[in-house]
């Protein structure tokens, strides 16, 4: 995605109350981190950090400044001191912008809007935590990822980028994740926000992402009010993405089957996430975004 230009920020989503709530969440997140969780995330990569990690045998070409002379005095062997290198965490928000994310009864926010709010809130928290943050919308395909932003002062650029997003099109998760990986962005946390209404499924894409070293986290957005529609009789169901029409006679029994089918579908999504060690959360659209953020925190792994 190209960086957002000087566009307006959507007031309906990111108003002052939202910003205040986000700030509170950031404070809450820091408190949670100090109580047991680390605020920064460290990589396993050895480097020039301050904290000793291990020794390794010296080989020619290594920087001699790193030789542990004390050890050499005891063992007469040349070893280099290894330090854990502190590295910025990259957080990629892969945001589903397909048409199915816009489905919502009247008076209920759409999945897309809720996803935008959650993304914004988590972005603010990540930026506050000095992580690098990028928002990558996807549908059938994906645009070149934006350059990750760092620092809290970049938050409004994130908001402008989110406000500029227009939903539409189909969902093709596997293709989108493969395209995302081909752009070889920095490894990091990939937060997938989607309803995952993809006939091809989620498993292959997640597996591909995991193999490439990314740490995926699955946030399934759903609207449970759609599971209990007040519609009966002969209907022509039109797929909002593909336009396919399926004629059916909707009965209470059929609706119950649909609910069961949805639960089975959600289970499939969760199973696909668990198979690659990804964390999985299912969030109803009616859930306030701050609760969603807290759920994400409780799921763990989001903050260092």
């Amino acid at each position: 995605m190209a960086e957002a230009g000087p566009r307006a920020i959507r007031d309906d989503l990111f108003d002052a109350a939202f910003l205040g709530r986000v700030e509170q969440l950031a404070l809450l997140a820091r408190r949670m981190a100090s109580s047991g969780q680390r605020a920064q995330r460290r990589t396993r990569k050895s480097g020039s950090g301050l904290e000793f990690a291990d020794h390794r045998e010296y080989t020619p070409g290594d920087d001699p400044r790193g030789i542990d002379w004390n050890l050499y005095a005891r063992s007469e062997r040349l070893n280099l001191k290894q330090y854990e290198e502190e590295e910025d965490l990259s957080v990629w928000f892969l945001l589903d912008r397909s048409s199915s994310m816009t489905m919502a009864p009247e008076g209920v926010p759409t999945l897309f809007d809720r996803a935008l709010q959650v993304t914004a809130a988590l972005s603010y928290i990540s930026l506050s935590n000095l992580d690098r943050v990028a928002v990558v919308p996807f549908g059938e395909t994906i645009a070149p990822p934006m350059r990750p932003l760092r620092g809290r002062n970049q938050f409004f650029r994130i908001l402008r980028a989110l406000s500029a997003l227009e939903p539409g099109g189909k969902t093709a998760i596997r293709g989108a994740l493969e395209a995302f990986e081909r752009h070889q962005p920095r490894r990091g946390l990939v937060l997938l926000l989607s309803d995952f209404y993809d006939p091809t499924g989620l498993g292959d894409g997640l597996r591909h992402l995991s193999i490439r070293g990314y740490e995926p986290m699955v946030l399934q957005l759903c609207d449970r009010s759609l599971l209990d529609p007040q519609l009966w009789g002969d209907l022509a169901m039109v797929d909002v993405e593909t336009g396919e029409v399926r004629e059916m006679t909707l009965t209470p029994a059929l609706m119950a089957k649909y609910r069961k089918a949805f639960e089975a579908f959600s289970a499939e999504v969760e199973r696909a996430a668990r198979e690659v060690g990804a964390r999985y959360l299912q969030v109803d659209v009616s859930t306030p975004f701050d609760e969603v953020v807290m759920k994400v925190f409780r799921a763990g792994g989001f903050l260092g």
């Binding site: 489905m103 309803d195 209404y197 039109v238 399926r246 004629e247 059916m248």
Partner: peptide
């Protein structure tokens, strides 16, 4: 003949599964 009401759904594939099973 009476026309069926058209209703947009986010994921027709899910309904397809239901219909097939049902």
């Amino acid at each position: 003949r009476p026309r069926r009401r058209r209703v947009e759904v986010p994921f027709g594939g899910l309904w397809q599964r239901v219909l097939q099973e049902s």
